[in-house]
Design a binder for these strands. Structure first.
Lengths: 267, 267
DNA sequence: CAGTGGTCTAGACCACTGG
DNA sequence: CAGTGGTCTAGACCACTGC
């Protein structure tokens, strides 16, 4: 059970291939083999070699490809699975996570009814209020890491549950990756918006950061959500990221929380 | 590299020791060895054999104790570490997580300043408004899984940052596990409340569920938080759990979010 | 039945900590 | 330097899926 002498060489080779500043660098930047494999898998996901919903090669196949033991690719896949980028199914294979599946339709929407089952009033109704193309304002530019003057798509919509308007959202998307996205396509698409992004624009939202505040409804917001002006609303500002931590969406949501609440588990 | 014949026997023995209904049960309830080891470690944590801040035995020692390979206890510890119950420190050992350390002082408080660094105004000032012992109301009874008529401790306090009152909290604790907790001890204790619970009452909060809403400030709340009545406040209802999913605290917080926000990462 | 992921072991070596 | 956790390998066997 000796570690074969080539193993060490292989690690070094991979390392130098990824860090590039190896010898005289101040930080040797050691990263274990499985992290490097994780990076290679991530690249294949990012490039679209394996698309959402599809299965990736089996562990033994990847081990052969990367010239590494099965245990090492297993650990790499374990990490990606724990980040919800991959989905393991025993006996079947490992699959690229997707927003298109029914069960994870609303993974990023944490507003749930106070009582009763999720979706007991049926699916949400989506109403596009407006959708236009503009130059990004400074705060949008900063949030999406754009250059000043870059074009963005802006949409405003209302989500209703059981006929009751509940969520008002303003959404900003960088125009370049979403070329061809129109109000019609947004309006006609049945299902989660992030599923549309995956299938049509090869953009998969992987994680998001949210800043939550309590605010008073403006007159315009009050009218759209059918509450009194000044009524308390939950303000949820979300920046969503693709693979490699690229910000790809800014969303400002205003939630009515009289019969629903934002649910969070902290540990 | 044969799996020794005793290994299978050992697994079965452990299994029957934990599931008790083994043979004729409808569900065989197979659970892997490392999950069983995880349970045994959890028991030792729960019983106080290893206390918060202390180190647990080394991996090889535990492997010997449980008559299992090091890799198996490693996987068990990995899970507990990912749940923030244990903390691994290379070269030093594995430690029981604690709320008493500076770095994790506010792990459960997700309200952060809009700009600047956390804690730039120095530590929070804690002001106990009242602290009394009563019979639990029905909703408190339900949240803490008590029997009707059980005693609870109730406290109300205000947290201020840099002199500005920011958080108003009502806290309910079951009286039994917290026997001897008085307003003085709460008021005099410097540091996170959960650290006090650990050292004085052997109660470690492990995870929590929060329900978040936007509400209008009542006159009483408005006065304590120095806002106008009806001003929007973030309502955060938290149920905190010890080991083994026992609810141990109900906390209703009202947060001012004019210069701070509730930060959440969703993935 | 073959193929997938899941568990378990045993052993070697590496990285980090402290005396 | 010894002791700790961290990485990597190789191989056996188990549980689950679908043909």
């Amino acid at each position: 059970m000796q570690t074969p002498p080539e193993a060490k060489t292989r690690v070094r080779a991979l390392q130098s291939a990824m860090t590039s500043a190896n010898q005289a660098g101040a930080a040797p930047a050691f990263s274990p083999l499985y992290q490097q494999i994780r990076g290679l898998i991530l690249n294949s996901l990012r490039s679209g070699e394996w698309k959402p919903g599809e299965s990736i090669p089996s562990e033994v196949e990847l081990a052969t490809r990367y010239r590494v033991s099965q245990g090492t690719v297993r650990k790499a896949i374990d990490e990606l699975a724990s980040e919800n980028l991959l989905l393991r199914r025993q006996g079947k294979g490992t699959f690229v996570a997707t927003h298109a599946e029914q069960q994870v339709q609303f993974r990023f929407l944490k507003l749930v009814p106070d009582a009763g089952t999720q979706g007991s009033e049926g699916p949400a109704q989506r109403t596009i209020i407006e959708c236009r193309r503009t130059r990004a304002s400074t705060d949008v530019t900063r949030a999406l890491a754009l250059r000043s003057g870059d074009q963005v798509l802006q949409a405003r919509r209302v989500l209703s549950f059981g006929g009751a308007p509940t969520i008002l959202e303003d959404i900003w998307l960088p125009a370049l990756p979403f070329k061809g996205l129109t109000a019609e396509r947004l309006a006609n698409y049945q299902g989660a918006m992030y599923a549309l992004f995956e299938t049509e624009f090869n953009v998969r939202m992987v994680r998001a950061e949210e800043k939550i505040r309590a605010v008073a409804a403006s007159p315009a917001q009050a009218q759209l959500l059918e509450v009194a002006p000044g009524a308390p609303l939950l303000s949820v500002e979300r920046v969503a990221y693709t693979y490699q931590d690229e910000p790809m969406e800014l969303r400002r949501g205003y939630y009515r929380t009289d019969t629903r609440h934002y649910r969070n588990d902290v540990s």
